[in-house]
Design a protein around this nucleic acid. Structure first.
Lengths: 332, 332
DNA sequence: GGATTTTTTGCAACCGGTTGCAAAAGCGCG
DNA sequence: CGCGCTTTTGCAACCGGTTGCAAAAAATCC
């Protein structure tokens, strides 16, 4: 049904190569030829088959966009930024949902079948083994929102979760909280582990602070609410560092139900600074994660790797910052 | 770099066709041959190039997933359901973000270049012209969350927005509200227009009800809040039917700031029943849109069309239902 | 066991493009 | 106008697969 290069060539009365060259930039074609071919192409409504050309050029301009975070609203923004950024560079995102996938091999095989030029793993919860599997299969890969490591094995773009943990701890201590708790996301997520270790390493220096910790089983409203309702039954802390904003919102809801007030009775600090955090009826104090920069940088890195697949792996880490709103008591 | 069919054939000592047939189901291969080939393929780590085969078969198993709703959290769920549903059927979603695109032609050209087998337009705000453009280009298309029409020109799966408008009106009247307003989303969205017309056609029958209407300029928290703050300045209505849940939440925040109470002073009913609507600190009364069913049905329709591209267009409309929570006064 | 039918296999052409190479065309210049 | 040089063009092979067709092999039947 669709018009092929051969038909255009016949119509224009030229060779197939001539047509091909007109649509390949950098190829040698005279002005006259170009005009002739373009006319014929327009008449016929021709557009070149990207997949056929990928066979010889070895490039599909397809980029696997791989994630398992389809429940956290910030990822809608992540997808928005990724798809637009890739499109702007003429690349096409092939979306892969790894939600209930535990074995990387199947996805690796699939991405190879479609000859993707590269893969972006956008996830804060996938184990590093996934991105390594892609690299081992020879697919250039960037792990966005991945774990910071001083010796990264694949390209990582994200934040320093350990430092975020420290930052949260410093903030709480500075505001005079002395009974402080960590309410993490899933214990298995690397981001949770790192925030935990940063948080407690900072608090270790403060002998007058008492600490405790627990984990919600997902980065979700329900998980946060459920865990906080449990904590409220027996002697809650003065302030909580929560694994994530949506978890924090669940926590706030539990506190409100129990008749306690934020920040008067309990202080809360989240992480991500999702859009909702600044909604006036939530007004969550939180740690801002520079999502836009992470995505932009990931795309730049991906593009660079397309030209230089064996590029030496690097970690690009962006600083986070506290966004003060209404869920922590003010500095004295 | 990747292993090709030819190499497998040489290693197994058979013809290329034999290898091809082993990986094509329904083809005639003896058990002995199959075992030989599979062994060689395994040794070499071969996996067939889906794009190359698409050249002769004419099928890529690529489905364009087209949307411009990257700011409404319910679409994260929509993407989750679509990607998983498509993957489960061996189809691959090629994501297209139309956020600032006004001309369908560019996307049509792109999807043709990649020879997608079909396109799902998942949007409540794109004009019908977009889906028609795909159909005219010979791409099987399903418009999910599209406008209901008794004479659809392309396949449409969604809800009857006119009926939703009526339903909202009936609900408000039944609860004794007599001064009722419509606070729509963007006036240009077909969903807004239909809800508007259903809402007012139902209210037309009630002589004792006074009505008014206005539009927010997006389906967003900020737009809803801004519009409500404006409305609160002069004689607000007793109850509002809001274009969407996230808009409603902005509206609730404005009302809270003004010192009025919901549902005592003002009643609110939303639409969508997004996850957030049932969060205890929001607890929004709303109209449930059966997203899961819409997505599932869209995928089924898409799959059916792959076998029968000229299938007669149909509209699949799912009923919505009121979800009673805390933002309308109870029935008397 | 041989003739006949059915199944399996390989050959070669094709899908829609790209590209190295050599021939053809165009150019500048004396 | 003819020469040498540069640019443009077409030929043909190739990318990694599939498939119709006929030959080869296996299965069935008498």
């Amino acid at each position: 049904m669709p018009v092929t290069l051969k038909e255009v060539a016949e119509r224009a009365g030229v060779s197939r190569s001539a047509v091909s060259r007109t649509f390949t930039d950098g190829a040698s074609v005279s002005e006259k030829m170009r005009r002739k071919v373009e006319k014929a192409a327009r008449d016929l409504g021709y557009s070149p088959n990207a997949l056929a050309s990928s066979l010889t050029t070895g490039r599909t301009k397809l980029i696997g966009l791989i994630s398992n975070n389809f429940h956290n609203p910030i990822f809608l923004q992540v997808f928005d930024l990724f798809t637009r950024g890739l499109q702007d560079r003429g690349l096409r995102p092939l979306l892969v949902n790894l939600t209930d996938e535990t074995d990387p091999q199947a996805s690796v095989a699939m991405l190879r079948q479609y000859s993707v030029d590269g893969a972006v793993v956008a996830s804060s919860t996938l184990p590093p083994g996934f991105s390594k599997a892609f690299r081992d299969a020879g697919v250039p890969v960037v792990h966005s929102f991945g774990r910071y490591s001083s010796a990264p094995q694949v390209h990582v773009v994200g934040i320093d979760n350990v430092e975020c943990g420290r930052m949260a701890a410093r903030t709480l201590v500075a505001r005079g909280y002395r009974k402080i708790a960590f309410l993490g996301g899933p214990e298995s997520a690397t981001s949770t582990q790192d925030r935990y270790s940063g948080f407690f390493s900072e608090l270790g220096a403060h002998r007058d602070v008492t600490t405790s910790y627990s984990f919600a089983d997902a980065y979700s409203f329900d998980a946060g609410r459920r865990e906080m309702l449990r904590l409220l039954k027996s002697d809650p802390a003065e302030a909580y560092f929560c694994g994530d904003d949506v978890l924090s919102i669940g926590v706030l809801s539990a506190i409100a139900d129990s008749g306690l007030r934020v920040p008067e009775d309990i202080g809360i600090i989240g992480l991500n600074d999702m859009e909702m955090a600044r909604w006036e009826n939530i007004n969550l104090t939180t740690i801002h994660q520079p999502i836009r920069q992470i995505v932009t940088s990931s795309i730049e890195l991906m593009v660079a790797m397309l030209d230089e697949p064996d590029r030496y792996p690097e970690a690009r880490i962006f600083p986070c910052s506290i966004v003060e709103r209404g869920t922590l008591r003010p500095l004295k």
